[in-house]
């Protein structure tokens, strides 16, 4: 078993863990955490699967690199929306 395969399988478990968290957790911050876990799991599958026979594949690596930066932007936007939501609730 290569490291690629090990981390691809770990990525699947992380993705499912995150998915379960997004569905089941009630606090918004936890959901954002769970959503990030889903993303990280998908990244691990993407790179791990391409490198399961031990080679190095720059194409999924470059895509995951862009993905990480987009994930932080999505997180920040989600936090901004949640804060706005809290503010709206408080004003009621």
């Amino acid at each position: 078993m290569t490291s690629g395969l090990v981390f691809a399988l770990a990525g699947v478990l992380l993705f499912v863990l995150g998915l379960g968290g997004v569905v089941m957790l009630s606090h918004a911050l936890r959901r954002i955490l769970a959503f990030n876990l889903m993303g990280s799991g998908a990244f691990l599958v993407l790179v791990g699967l391409a490198q399961r026979d031990g080679g190095v594949d720059p194409v999924p690596q470059a895509m995951v690199l862009t993905g990480i930066v987009v994930a932080v932007a999505a997180t920040a936007l989600a936090l901004a929306l949640v804060r706005r939501l809290h503010g709206a609730h408080r004003d009621d």
């Binding site: 981390f7 770990a10 790179v47 791990g48 690596q61 690199l65 990480i68 994930a71």
Partner: peptide, 18 residues
């Protein structure tokens, strides 16, 4: 983990951004 997958670029980005 990224470093173990010899994805040094992602490892750097993950540590700094992620």
């Amino acid at each position: 983990a990224w470093a173990r997958l010899s994805a040094t670029d992602i490892a750097l980005a993950e540590a700094a951004i992620g």
